[in-house]
Design a protein around this nucleic acid. Structure first.
Lengths: 352, 352
DNA sequence: TTGTACGCGTTATCAC
DNA sequence: GTGATAACGCGTACAA
């Protein structure tokens, strides 16, 4: 933990001024022997530029923040996996904020932009409150929101389209001959819950199927909630032949209950999840799931932000990422040969 | 994106000196009406302290870096999930480095400590090369290594114990009456591969079982490798009655093949994975897995680092986290009632 | 109690 | 080409 040398140290050692040192270090035109003297001194002393001092001078930190509710959430993780390399390639470091589903904390992150420790922010808000909108309007650095913000909000915006996603799933189920398709949704007062519920209603209408309240069950977005909800549904409507689940965890809970009840998947009941997380490919039967393009949204957000950091004067942009249906065994009949979707590295290197 | 006010701005506005502003902002004893004037001005202007300038002055960034090979890897993620809140509670931001299994990149991270953009680093090296050891010895900020470093390396060290972990698994299988336990390992030239192979040999000896080369198969740490390896094993030794897999992905591959071959799990063949990732609880049957305590290691590392940041003069410390066996359906017979291990939030908030 | 002045390490603008 | 010197925003001796 040796004390770090500064350009002053080097200047003395090389017998030149700090200005010359700076010039050499920045590749500005300099006489050859000055260059060599400086380089030699820098080498000997193990000089490394102080990023903090440069930032103070340049008011550029080369850091970007990514804020979301929970690092452990697979959907956010998928974004992170894409964001990280894009930023890195552009020479930016990534500062991670996990706000723990706390709205006040999210506002805090927005506020902290004033501290100027990052050049920009990518955030995935849980909800977009008035406080959010005020802070976004007054943000001290460029912000890209993954989610939906009202038109006119002065930030770049990347959206998924879960309504269409639900539509894709229901079309698929309909094509397979399923006519009594239940919905296991999350809370309708969350953005995703609302969108998925609306998508379900729309899709039914488009397919000419009646909307049947008894086929809809609400819970939270966790596996245990899925179990509870599906148990209730089966009880109420034993003739149900398909389940649209608002995310993969709920769908896993559905599989648990169907298995316990002796219903075959997909022969008796087809199951569709949402988000297409790693869990979908790992489960048995593997889970057909609607991908909302988390990875694509992450990449798009990173690119929008980088673009704006280079040229801040473009108008706010909106990118919508289309959903995609990943068909697997839980609707497709035979277990498709495992595709290796979940084939990411395990703990190699992380153990001992 | 209004231009940020500085203490100078506030000083003018409040009609006092910048020193007084600083004093008020830092809670130093100040006359009451000065306090009010300054607070009022700060409020009106929406003042926020410039973190970069403070860092330059205090040579403290309140940032800590976490470097590992791949954010997408569940084992690293488990660490991250624990590290993040610990750092946050202590007022530190988290800078994420995903080195992509590139040794040169890891060295680069170590080198970049000289830029002083973080106060410390937690790293999980893939391998520990001589270059690593040199850089660690010369590191310009405190480093905690998760993995194993040679004695005498001047850094805090947090280790797992996968040998004992394998031992736990084999004891369990032995107690269940299994006597022909195969090993599906990763490359023996990786640290985890070597340790797990050694653990297998040791455990067999301790149990009085013969070591049978035919029961061992080597591949990489991915699901497809697991499938390949287990197919070969079944072919060679149809009488095999248990499989110790070097990680959970391999184990998932094993389940794929066993299912296709009509072997019941666990009745015909018991399967044990390693790392106890979310996938273990999500799979069917759910997977008995050896937890190497990724979460605990992450937390321990964060605490060691924070401790050292407060008092840098303690001697290098070594923490070893014991493994734990998570027994689930792939060895336990009946499907245990789902435990909710995988009950983490889904995409709520991440969609649209 | 308050203000002046300096330093943290860099970059950049001047005269020389 | 090079060397003083002035910022960047903040904290803090020191003097008043």
């Amino acid at each position: 933990m040796a004390q770090g040398p500064t350009i002053t140290t080097i200047a003395k050692r090389a017998g030149v001024s700090i200005a010359s040192v700076s010039r050499v270090l920045n590749g500005l035109p300099t006489r050859q022997d000055t260059v060599s003297k400086v380089m030699a001194a820098a080498e000997e002393l193990g000089y490394v530029r102080n990023a903090v001092a440069r930032s103070l001078k340049s008011s550029r930190t080369h850091q970007v923040a990514f804020a979301m509710a929970d690092v452990g959430n697979p959907a956010y993780l998928a974004m992170l996996r894409e964001i990280q390399p894009v930023l890195k390639a552009a020479g930016y470091r990534l500062v991670l904020h996990s706000t723990g589903a706390d709205v006040a904390d999210e506002i805090g992150v927005l506020h902290s932009l004033g501290e100027r420790y990052v050049d920009g922010l990518i955030m995935v808000p849980l909800r977009v409150t008035d406080a959010h909108l005020r802070m976004l309007a007054a943000a001290r650095a460029p912000v890209v929101v993954i989610g939906s913000v009202p038109e006119g909000t002065p930030v770049d915006n990347v959206r998924a389209d879960s309504r269409t996603g639900v539509r894709l799933a229901l079309d698929h189920l309909h094509a397979l001959g399923r006519r009594r398709v239940g919905l296991v949704n999350g809370p309708p007062d969350t953005v995703p819950g609302a969108a998925r519920g609306a998508g379900y209603v729309e899709a039914l209408a488009a397919l000419g199927l009646p909307y049947d309240k008894e086929l809809v069950e609400i819970g939270d977005f966790y596996r245990a909630d899925g179990r509870r909800a599906v148990a209730a549904l089966l009880d109420r409507r034993p003739d149900i032949d398909a389940l649209m689940c608002a995310n993969d965890l709920i769908a896993l809970g559905a599989l648990d209950v169907l298995r316990a009840a002796g219903r075959r998947v997909p022969q008796d009941v087809a199951v569709v999840g949402m988000d297409d997380t790693d869990l979908a490919a790992a489960s048995w039967p593997s889970l057909t799931s609607v991908s909302l393009g988390s990875a694509e949204r992450g990449r798009a957000a990173a690119e929008l932000l980088l673009d704006r950091l280079e040229d801040g004067d473009v108008a706010p942009r909106l990118v919508t990422v289309p959903p995609r249906l990943e068909v697997r065994a839980s609707t497709a009949g035979e277990q498709a040969p495992p595709t290796g979707d979940a084939d990411r590295p395990g703990a190699d290197g992380a153990g001992a």
